[in-house]
Design a binder for these strands. Sequence first.
DNA 1: CGTCCCACCTGATTGC
DNA 2: TGCAATCAGGTGGGAC
Length: 274
Amino acid sequence: MPELPEVETIANGVNERVRGARIMSVWTSGKPQTFKSPEVEIEEVLTGATIDRVRRVGKTIVLTLERDADGGAPPVPAEFLVHLGMTGRLLVAEGDVPLPPHTHAVLALEDGREVRFVDPRRFGRLSVVREAYLGPGAEPTTIGVEDFATLFKGRKLAIKAALLNQSLLHGVGNIYADESLFRAGIRPTRQAGRLTRAELARLREALRSVLQRAIKLGGSSVSDYVDAEGMRGYFQIEHKVYGHGGEPCTVCGTPIKKIVVGGRGTHYCPRCQR
DNA sequence: CGTCCCACCTGATTGC
DNA sequence: TGCAATCAGGTGGGAC
């Protein structure tokens, strides 16, 4: 479901609500696939900890934890990592509101509220790490033009597939890959290593502006995405190609094509994107 | 190592 | 209406 702008919206929302709150108890569902760290370890690290802050790294929501030194506590620093997969949600709710189906973790806070992880398809992952989490790749909203160009040098795969590779840039997913390639006028099937300097510069700028605009609008709500407060985003209104296969291009009127690149549905304008 | 493809899940939508 | 096929915002592992 969520890419960088959606994850950032959720992380910021959760941060505002639970920053400084203390976790009194933890419940986990026991679905093994959901937990990248052992459930007992997650429960042990989280229970009694204070949430120092919540931020986004790539597509991962990171909760930085703090503990009193005298509590028989595990070593600081510790971070709780929430990856939402396709359908994951991280919600803050009053404890007396019934748990939605497919809830896999509940952090009960001191004041009666709960942080809940809900994920029907179970592609999401929860884990704890003992050091500051940096993510697998470079940050697309701040990367410089030189570093951006270096990422793709000598690569033979399609630029669309390269944009989705989280160990190069992290945070870019299917929607924003298609939308940034459209705005940069680059066909998704082009070999990454064969883009010109000018095209790479355009792509970096398009990516950055699309991501920042989407963050401003609270992300894209394609089907059921909602932020920590249950609010939808509005960037889907500005999608030019994603989800518009067969419709006329807003720039030239040519029908938008939908093909498969790197196993993912890929939308582009055959006239505007070369 | 780089690249490709599929499995991992459930639910919504499409098509017969 | 009913049911099967198809598709979905992501990743990670195995094959080559």
